[in-house]
Design a binder for these strands. Structure first.
Lengths: 220, 220
DNA sequence: ACCTGAACACCGTTCAAGT
DNA sequence: ACCTGAACACCGTTCAAGT
């Protein structure tokens, strides 16, 4: 599903078997990312609860015990999936903002579109990101969450400076916007609301736009 | 934790042991609700992922196999927890609305307060309610969800009729409000935002109020 | 009707050992 | 360094049997 490139290139051609390892192929950090990829696939198919260390190892073609070389336990794999997801989200948002223009309304809607599209396109990974965990046990994941959140804070600050947003605590406003995006994405993912892919951006604009009007100084 | 009354009263006094059954005590539907209660306790303590049929049965003092008399499988227990939760939420909201006055702003804020308080007070049950499941497999749970949602639809309709709300599809507006409540509750529960209990209602008002201003016709 | 002993195929995790 | 066989204590679920 998700094509992920390991730092060390594999010289032998890929066999078309479900990723059997060729012969000690997963040294040098390959196994770690292969397991993460396998986890993402399994979670997409069976949900977080249906994800199993043993099956991930099987998918990669390795004894399940090998996973413990790279992860302390099952939760550590999930934390790694979350971390990778937050970083991807960070990158996607950053890229989208380049062409988003100066208006804070447009910029926040752009972020929301990317966020909701991500949830729609990769429900498995989103489920992990948005899960009930906090990642204090996993500092690098925690940092990735903070980094992603920092984008929102930066944008909200911009909006306040440009006097496009109402007054208010910046962090709280950022949290508020995050919660509206997250609420919407969750609603769609749990099928409590059904939207076709082609209508997704429009729907996002409409839903997020409603709340946004409440924090904009004047209608845009 | 949650005191739940079974339809058939137990005549013998409760032993203070962790709910051992007295002697064929869980006939006539007692076991079912005892298992639901046990599930709620376990989920509060260990999260949904940590909830186990076998441990719930152990807590009730019954062989784990007995659970299958009342539930098709583990998911059915979770669906029952969700159903009970949605019904409690329904009742709490309905009660709170009695004294909420006519203004749609106040009424929606009242609903949000109850919702967020529920999530804060019973994270275990909320986690099940808000989980990634849709309950099509469990018709009675599905109905409970619809019933809870219907309250929102009714209120939004009221608001539109009284011309306090902007024009828009009523169901979509109701979904929108649900998503803002849900997003906020989730944010608090996952500790991405920390609020003390005494400040919870005020925080809810502030957060929900922001978005709400976007759908009200004029400031209240 | 309601409950259970024994069993099956699975888990996550650990130990002690192989290259 | 990286990988694995064997084992442990757990799961969810089923069968066949008890009252």
């Amino acid at each position: 599903m998700t094509a992920r490139r390991a730092s060390t290139a594999t010289t032998s051609p890929r066999p078309r078997q479900p990723q059997r390892k060729a012969r000690g192929d997963y040294h040098h950090g390959n196994l770690r990312s292969a397991l993460i990829d396998a986890a993402v696939v399994l979670i997409s198919e069976h949900g977080v609860a249906g994800f199993t260390l043993r099956e991930a190892a099987r998918l990669v073609g390795v004894d399940h015990r090998a996973a413990y070389r790279h992860f302390a336990d099952r939760d550590a794999v999930l934390a790694a999936v979350a971390e990778q997801g937050y970083r991807d989200l960070h990158r996607l948002v950053t890229e989208a903002l380049v062409d988003a223009g100066p208006s804070i309304r447009t910029r926040l809607l752009t972020i929301a579109r990317v966020y909701v599209r991500f949830a729609f396109a990769e429900p498995g990974r989103y489920q992990v990101l948005a899960g009930p965990h906090n990642y204090l046990r996993f500092p690098t994941t925690d940092t990735a969450v903070d980094d992603a959140f920092a984008i929102l804070v930066t944008e909200i600050e911009r909006g306040c400076r440009r006097r496009e947003l109402v007054n208010g605590d910046v962090t709280e406003l950022a949290a508020w916007f995050w919660s509206t995006m997250h609420g919407l994405a969750d609603l769609i993912l749990s099928r409590r609301v059904r939207v076709r892919r082609e209508l997704l951006d429009g729907f996002t604009d409409r839903m997020i736009g409603r709340g946004l009007s409440g924090v904009l100084r004047k209608a845009t």
